[in-house]
Design a protein around this nucleic acid. Structure first.
Lengths: 348, 348
DNA sequence: TTGAAAGCGCTAACAC
DNA sequence: GTGTTAGCGCTTTCAA
């Protein structure tokens, strides 16, 4: 910077003012400085400036993985948005409990970011408290934390509506498939199961734990086995609600492998509306991770700038049921009908 | 830090030494300092320390998007590896040409990172030169840049082998499907086309531009249309080599929609071996983005520490042809046979 | 509108 | 093994 100042024949302060776009610089000086900076290929060191301003210009992002549709979409939308605000994005990938313990022990984001975006972690009280005294705003995405800024969809309601869709089609034996996650990374999954149960209860359909199956994530064999378990039940399901599209896709392919047509014999309903849902013509519940990312980033920027902004606001984004080709009425009418709620046609 | 020093009854230097894990601290003092640091919830400011050490502790990563299988896998493996080396990862998402121009204009990584990992960009000379004078090592991933450290797979050879697999099965009308990318983001795609052409030429199969189709990325309609174009050719293909699994998946579903069985009527071969390949039982060429990420990170760390390390080494990672259920011999023997190369059975 | 000087929080070189 | 001191590159008073 001293070099630039010398070359432009001004003081370092003036160079600083110019490069930060302050107005209190005469046009001629401004041109001279900018030219010198360009010639010397100069860029301000964030390290040095943040040392004095107290701002790092960094948005920290905590994610369990980047290898998922949700994270990819959410963070891709984040990047350009932050750039617009002059911020950079540093990403902490914390895939398992060991890394997680270490993260919370060392808390590397402390003093090294202006805000922290926490994605998809099911934090315990202690962890939340630890983040609280990070000294910067912490925004929770795809999870709701009491009294802290959060951005999420109402998974319970969405799953409930989705399940009702199946009920309204005439299904009464409805399975719920979810993936086992490492403990502490599965907020939405739990809520979706709640929604499923709620819909069944409302429709007076008895809950049957045999209909709730669990598979390891992204495991073809596990899915096949789950399908086998469901089919070998005395009264097998006529519909399966999968907690995620990926799982739904896997289920459909497993079912077709054993010559069970979807939706003729069994309906399958997903959650997410990611790309493969359209390809597979999969009925699903749409949510938009990029909207969530954007909302979270905007909220974070607001909290950074207004130190006295509302720290406990929750942004609940909408979901949409998208009926496609994998859900249809069950193959043969099930005997009992009496419990059917009279309202709500098929337009759940 | 001064607070910690005071609380522990030592000087700031000692605190610094302790927290950096230097050995020249007596055990008792070390315990006292660590305790004080914990009690005060103190963490070192990277900003301040990098100002004096000249190291930022940051690995910058330049990617076109995060919303893709390749990036997700590559960066997920990167995170923990960097953490192990005490580094953080800041990600620059540069999705289009406008953002790209701005990135290269401002070069925000300058002085704010110890190394830069450039993923999947097909850079021009000027851009490469601009990165050269960034002052830190720049590693190119999934692309080869002459004289610069690069990590990639041999797309030409892999595509050639893959095409030979189809030829060896008896196919002679082989289509190549690729996605249109924004100019400058499509290094591998180009190389895979080259490999395809090379294999055909070696087998004396005439190149036919009608067999090379292009679709917008992730566009169902575009795929459907491409399939339509291929099927309406006077002599339609009996096999399609898709530049990526995603595209292959989309093609298969399009084909099945119009009642064309895969592989009975048309074989489909992908590239990547991502999750959906296994699900769809898709024959494909496997590459490992996480290995590429790891190799790149290790190379970067080496270049950071050895200023005189070999700056032009290229790491070429292996690919594997994985024949699964979507490739089979063509339905009916094609008339002409004379051009067949005698070598190489079916074990391409 | 510009410059001089102080200092942000840390580390490194040197003394003890 | 520990403390003292100078200074990394910037921004920010304050004075001119």
């Amino acid at each position: 910077m001293a070099d630039v100042a010398e070359r432009a024949g001004v003081s370092p302060s003036t160079v600083s003012r110019t490069l930060r776009g302050l107005t209190s610089v005469s046009p001629q000086v401004r041109t001279r400085v900018e030219e010198a900076a360009r010639e010397l290929n100069f860029a301000i060191s964030r390290q040095a400036s943040s040392l004095v301003t107290g701002r790092t210009g960094v948005m920290a992002v905590l994610v369990p993985t980047l290898d998922s549709w949700f994270m990819g979409a959410a963070l891709s939308s984040l990047g350009p948005l932050l750039r617009g605000a002059g911020m950079e994005m540093t990403v902490y990938v914390v895939p398992d409990l060991a890394e997680r313990a270490e993260f919370f022990e060392r808390l590397p984001a402390r003093r090294n970011a202006d805000a922290l975006l926490v994605f998809c972690f099911d934090l315990n009280k202690e962890e939340t408290a630890r983040l609280d005294d990070l000294g910067v705003p912490v925004i929770y995405i795809s999870q709701h934390v009491e009294g802290r800024p959060s951005v999420y969809v109402d998974d319970v309601a969405a799953a409930c509506r989705a399940t009702r869709h199946l009920i309204n089609l005439g299904h009464r034996r409805i399975a719920f498939a979810h993936t086992v996650n490492a403990r502490g990374f599965s907020f939405s999954s739990r809520d979706r199961l709640l929604g499923y149960r709620q819909a069944l209860t409302e429709a007076d359909i008895p809950l049957d734990d045999d209909l709730v199956v669990t598979t390891p994530p992204r495991d073809k064999r596990g899915t096949t086995q789950a399908v086998g378990n469901l089919l070998s039940l005395r009264e097998p399901p006529t519909a399966i609600f999968a907690e995620q599209d990926e799982l739904a896709a896997s289920l459909i392919l497993s079912l077709r492998t054993v010559q069970i047509e979807v939706p003729e014999r069994i309906s399958v309903l997903g959650f997410d509306d990611q790309l493969m849902a359209e390809w597979l013509d999969l009925s699903t519940v749409a949510q938009s991770p990029s909207d969530m990312g954007r909302a979270a980033a905007e909220l974070a920027l607001e909290l950074i700038n207004d130190s006295d902004a509302d720290l406990s606001q929750h942004i609940v984004l909408p979901t949409h049921l998208i009926p496609r080709g994998t859900t249809a009425p069950p193959p043969a009418p099930q005997g009992e009908r009496e419990g059917n709620s009279p309202a709500e046609g098929r337009n759940a």
